[in-house]
């Protein structure tokens, strides 16, 4: 059985706001399936005695003190934005979402 179905890929594409045509979906579904299959082999090796990790280095409790440092200026912050209005980022109409 495939690790990921074509429908699931279509769903993920929708959630990720990536437009994909039928050919792309077919292609990506089989590619992702291969990748997931490879990752699944790691799970075979890592049995219950190895806790899953989310970080490559076994670090924990990396904190910083609660101290304010200078921010960017609004001009700097907005400099990479495709559109702005006054001191704010301007984004297209938001559709189909709640407020």
């Amino acid at each position: 059985m495939a690790a990921i179905s074509r429908d699931e890929v279509a769903h993920l594409a929708r959630l990720s706001r990536i437009e994909m045509n039928d050919a792309e979906l077919d292609h990506l579904a089989s590619e992702l399936d291969l990748i997931l299959g490879a990752v699944a082999r790691v799970q075979e090796v890592a049995q219950g005695d190895i806790p899953p990790t989310s970080h490559a280095i076994p670090l924990h409790n990396v904190f910083r003190a609660d101290v304010v440092k200078p921010s960017l200026t609004p001009e700097e912050s907005l400099s990479g934005a495709p559109a702005t209005e006054g001191p704010r980022f301007k984004v297209p109409q938001i559709l189909g979402e709640a407020e």
Binding site: V62, F63, R64, V68, S71, P74, G80, P87, F89
Partner: peptide
């Protein structure tokens, strides 16, 4: 390390981390 003042002028308390700019890395406030 951006300030958290309420009511500051728009986008005066932003930096690469809280703007999600590529390459920025978060560090947790103790």
């Amino acid at each position: 390390s951006c300030a958290t003042e309420f009511g500051a002028e728009p986008n005066t308390q932003t930096c690469p981390v809280c703007l999600g700019l590529p390459g920025s890395l978060p560090v947790v406030n103790a």
